[in-house]
Amino acid sequence: MAIKRKTWQLIAQQLLLIVLTFVMLYPLLWMTVSSFKDNSTIFTTAHSLVPNKLNFDSYVEGWKGFGGITFTTFFKNSFIITILSTIGSVLSSTLIAYGFARIKFSGKQIWFVCMMITMMLPYEIIMVPQYIMFNWFGWVNTYWPLILPTFFGTPFFIFLIMQFIRTIPHEIDEAAKIDGCSKFMIFSRIIMPLIVPAMMTSAIFSFYWRWDDFMGPLLYLNQPQLYPVSLGLKMFSDPDSITNWSALFAMSTVSILPVFIIFFMFQRYIVEGISTSGLKG
């Protein structure tokens, strides 16, 4: 009886997980299916997850974009912003985390507390001062406000990588010093290879956040040829005319493909970078 009870409990748990998974994925499934429907039938057949026929015209129309600017340009802009921002964020955060974890300097605790406090600040608080500053620099309508700040570290990544570095024994640093290694050599040749999982985890999160960023490009970019995908999708919605919903859903479906590809390629680093230690026996 106990075995049967455990079996039924396991079946019930699996069914519950399947139902919850379907509920969470339903909006995504509905959007993907709707991208294959005619624009006139999307909301009349909204209850159905099976299109009457596969219509790829919405993908062709959607990719043409607006005003001669295709989604090739939008995707190129998104990749430029996302890749450069991710590289800057991960490398700078790794270097800062190494300083907090391994180097002694005056005011270390105060600077660490200040860094942690910035994690609690909503973006809306610094949005206006940042815009005024970047406008004074003449960087509005360029990618600099979206990319350059990431080269000064991201607090969450600094904290994550710093905790990872702290699991690495200090004896390794001492042995390297005896061999004549400087602090930078210890960082680049010993610490960095050991914290790759944490760096990859940070890179994955950074890619997600930058790819989905809408407010930053909306504030600083004024020319459509500079828009990333997030702003390109917004251009489909026109309150003064008929919105091409099928093309919007088609390009939305295409826009999430890079996120899925990155996740499935590097998903093992997410858990490993957060839960494991720096060294493995």
Rank of each mutant, 00 (worst) to 15 (best):
K177G: 04
I172F: 13
T150H: 14
E171K: 06
T142H: 08
F184T: 15
F187G: 02
W209Q: 13
T142C: 08
I186P: 10
M127G: 11
F207Y: 07
I178Y: 00
A175P: 03
W136N: 15
I178G: 09
P122A: 08
P145Y: 01
F187K: 03
V128R: 04
L160D: 01
M199E: 03
P145A: 05
F157L: 03
I158T: 09
I204L: 11
P169C: 02
L146R: 08
P193M: 07
Q163S: 07
P155A: 05
S202N: 09
F156C: 07
S202Q: 03
I204T: 07
M116V: 13
T150C: 12
F157V: 09
P122L: 01
V196M: 12
S188D: 10
T150Y: 11
V196D: 05
Y143C: 07
I165N: 01
L160C: 05
P197S: 08
P122F: 00
T167P: 07
F156A: 14
M116S: 13
F159P: 09
L121A: 06
G138A: 02
P122K: 03
N141G: 11
I178V: 10
T150S: 15
Y131D: 02
P155V: 02
T118G: 08
H170Y: 13
P129I: 11
W139H: 11
P169A: 09
T167R: 05
M127V: 10
M119Q: 01
T150M: 13
M200K: 05
D173I: 01
P193V: 07
E174N: 08
M199V: 07
I168C: 01
W209S: 14
M185T: 14
P193D: 11
I132T: 13
Q163F: 00
W139A: 14
A176E: 03
D173K: 04
I190W: 11
M133F: 13
H170Q: 13
I168T: 02
F156W: 08
F134S: 13
W209R: 13
P145L: 03
I204N: 07
I186T: 12
M127C: 08
M200Q: 08
I126R: 02
L148Q: 10
G180H: 06
I191H: 01
F137D: 09
F156E: 12
S202F: 03
Y123G: 14
I204F: 10
A198F: 00
F134I: 11
Y123I: 09
I168S: 03
P129E: 12
L146Q: 04
M192T: 10
D173C: 03
E124T: 10
M162W: 00
P155S: 05
I158W: 04
M200C: 15
F151L: 14
M119F: 04
P197L: 03
P169D: 05
W136M: 14
L148I: 15
T167I: 00
W136F: 15
S202Y: 02
T154M: 15
Q130D: 12
Q163V: 00
I165R: 00
G153I: 00
F164E: 02
L160A: 03
M127I: 12
M133V: 09
F184L: 15
Y208M: 15
A198R: 07
T154K: 12
R189Q: 12
N141Y: 06
S206Y: 00
M119V: 02
F205Q: 11
V128G: 10
D173V: 06
F184N: 09
M185E: 15
S206T: 01
P197C: 06
F156G: 11
M185N: 14
N135Y: 10
P149W: 04
P129V: 12
M192K: 05
L121E: 01
I158K: 01
